[in-house]
Design a protein around this nucleic acid. Structure first.
Lengths: 239, 239
DNA sequence: ATTATCTATAGATCTATAGATAATGC
DNA sequence: ATTATCTATAGATCTATAGATAATGC
């Protein structure tokens, strides 16, 4: 069934049975290992072994281990960041609660559906420091700012009066990232669960029960507009 | 001024200028390195260097790197877990909101005041798996259960009806652990900020504004009862 | 000619053990 | 005698580079 189309390059010592590009095979193998064992604890040899190539062959696709992680991180935030403008365009400007709910749902889904729970890598100390991940950190900061902005606008006056965008953004985004913990604990993440998390974020803003209900149903409708395609799409796939 | 009292054992190649036990010196140095560089990325040599002893001398105090991390993790949750019974004794049984607020404040303070932001190590993948950290994971699970229990009892009927203890516990505890992110981002954690985080946790339970205000002032009073002593106390210090 | 792999390996680690040694304590 | 260190090192990694090789594509 997996009759491989012949391809250029010296054959692998273990023939590939996968249709995805070698680069993505590496990314997938690395993601699983980084998530289960940790970045520093994963050797390039282990990654290569999973892919079915020799350790040195990795360096044809990536300049180093760092670069593999950098790309994985990018792929886990970029989709959500890219959708922020569309959210703002779709949601009527007064209804900030809906915007926040929708943002949360999209973020939750991206984190939940990513192969191998890449979200837990955010906390890895390695990531916080090295220059290589600056682009990822910038994207994440943008997301924090968006959460903060949406949250402050949706919040009741008494809540909004007391806190700045940055701190509130961190609080909201962090509370959404609980998906990662839940996934890691082996609990299944249902759609209901995703909605509970999003609703909890709105309650943090002191949004009323009724407004939350409205936001939930509107956001769920709008969610269909966000085809989940941009995520983990192999480079060069223009289908 | 730091005239060292003579002590048994061969002298260090760099004489210690610290009064704390060698074991705690190792723990402190390791904590800083684990937090800034990551566990796997930190070598025993680096730890020893900071302490001012040779790499091999670490093994007189700890059986291995793992054991150092295990103890650091323990020290970061044990204080809070140990206080749960006292919280339940001090807070009148009907006032669950206050109990949750107090739990959150204590947890936040423990995470905020620990030297070197050890909380970020919770997410490190290494920790999730290895058997050595089982004791830590158990303690943390107990804390999750407590958050869930306090939260469910404090929650409005409509919120409580919809979610189970475990998931709610993860959500509440995770939202409190934002301290870790805030600390890591270099933002200072003020007492006001701690209260904002605790209040947000109560809002997640749909607790009314008035009840939150009462819980906040009662919990702040009660907080004085919890001398922060058990944390990072050097072993054998019975002062 | 180009592409994607392979083999071989240098050089730099890193952890943990064995056994010596220099203090204090009795 | 006990304690807390030291020196030396075995053995096991691990990353990245150099250069060869086996396919396809033209």
């Amino acid at each position: 069934m997996t009759t491989r189309r012949p391809s250029p390059g010296r054959p692998r010592h273990v023939p590939s049975s996968s249709a995805v590009s070698p680069r993505d095979q590496v990314l997938n193998a690395a993601a699983e290992l980084f998530v289960t064992r940790g970045f520093a604890a994963t050797s390039t040899r282990e990654i290569a072994e999973r892919v079915g190539i020799r350790q040195a062959s990795l360096y044809y696709h990536f300049a180093g281990k760092d670069e593999i992680l950098a790309e994985l991180l990018q792929r886990s935030v970029r989709p959500t960041v890219d959708k922020v403008a569309k959210i703002e365009a779709l949601v009527p400007p007064q209804i900030h609660a809906t915007a926040l709910y929708l943002l949360a749902l999209i973020d939750i889904r991206t984190l939940a559906e990513a192969p191998h729970n890449v979200g837990i890598l955010y906390g890895q100390a390695d990531v916080t420091n090295s220059e290589i991940y600056a682009e990822f950190r910038d994207a994440r900061q943008e997301l924090v700012a968006t959460y903060g902005r949406f949250g402050l606008q949706a919040a009741s006056p008494s809540v909004a009066a007391d806190i700045d965008t940055r701190e509130f953004g961190e609080m909201l985004m962090h509370s959404v990232e609980v998906v990662t913990t839940i996934r890691n604990a082996g609990m299944t993440l249902t759609a209901k669960s995703a909605n509970r998390i999003a609703a909890a974020a709105l309650r943090m803003c002191d949004v009323s029960k009724d407004t939350i209900a409205t936001a939930a149903s509107t956001a769920t409708e709008l969610l269909a507009e966000f085809h989940h395609e941009s995520h983990q799409r192999p480079a060069g796939d223009h289908t």
